[in-house]
Amino acid sequence: MTRTPLSDVACSIARATDLFGDAWTALIMRDVLTGISRFDDLAEDLGISRKVLTARLSRLVEEGVLARERYQERPPREHYVATAKGEELYPVLLALAAWGDRWYGGEAGPPARVHHLTCGRDTTMVAACAHCAEPLTVDNTLALPGPGGRIGPGTRLLGPLIASRHTP
């Protein structure tokens, strides 16, 4: 099945999911960011075919999210490391995990915990305002057109539509 590319859509969510919108890519990034970085280890941990893993890793390297780094000269061996661009996906994965824990954790609870080394406590991801630190919700935010916006497929200007949600 051929996927419609979203890289030209004037929407940051569309552009990000064009790269990051399949489960394998998210799970590869989870593994790399938590220390599983060698091709064979990734294939084994994920149970993914080598062909699919090669394609996803190649795209992540091409997009500058991961880099291949040599860790052994003889025989030559490389592993994958997150670039700064890739490391910035960590909060996205934490938010997705928190949502999954809440809605799909089941009776046994979350399959993993996030431990904050600075304060020494287990935590969960909270999206908060960069200015006042209030948690961001659908009820206290408004999507407005940005400087890079343009009208086209998948780019409906949401401001007036969402604003009606905030009026009695």
Rank of each mutant, 00 (worst) to 15 (best):
H131E: 04
A67C: 12
R102Y: 03
T17C: 05
L161F: 08
L27D: 09
P76C: 07
V32F: 10
L46S: 05
G105M: 05
A97K: 13
E87M: 12
D40R: 07
A143K: 15
V138A: 10
L94A: 08
L136F: 09
P76E: 14
D8W: 09
Y90F: 12
R121H: 09
D101Q: 11
W103I: 04
S164I: 07
Y104N: 03
G148K: 12
R74W: 08
P110T: 08
D18H: 05
T17M: 14
L94H: 04
R15L: 05
V92A: 13
P75S: 06
G35W: 09
A67F: 13
D101M: 09
T54L: 07
G47I: 03
P168N: 03
T167M: 01
V65Q: 04
M125G: 06
V114E: 01
I36L: 14
A43C: 01
A43K: 02
G106N: 15
H115F: 15
A55M: 05
P160M: 07
G100W: 11
C129H: 13
R156Y: 13
L96I: 13
G64C: 11
T17Y: 03
S49T: 15
G35C: 01
E107M: 05
I13H: 12
L19T: 14
L117H: 03
A108V: 12
G159Q: 07
L93P: 11
C129W: 09
R150F: 09
L46G: 10
R165F: 10
L19C: 04
D18G: 09
A84P: 08
G146A: 14
A133N: 13
I151N: 12
A108I: 09
A128H: 07
D45I: 01
T141H: 01
R121W: 06
G106V: 13
E44H: 09
L94Y: 02
A143R: 13
P135N: 05
T167P: 00
A163V: 01
A43Y: 00
E107T: 11
A26I: 10
G47C: 02
D18T: 01
S12K: 09
S49W: 06
E107Q: 08
A82G: 11
T25L: 03
T167W: 02
M29P: 08
A23I: 02
V9Q: 12
R150A: 12
A16F: 11
D31C: 15
I36T: 15
S12H: 11
V65P: 02
R15W: 07
E69N: 06
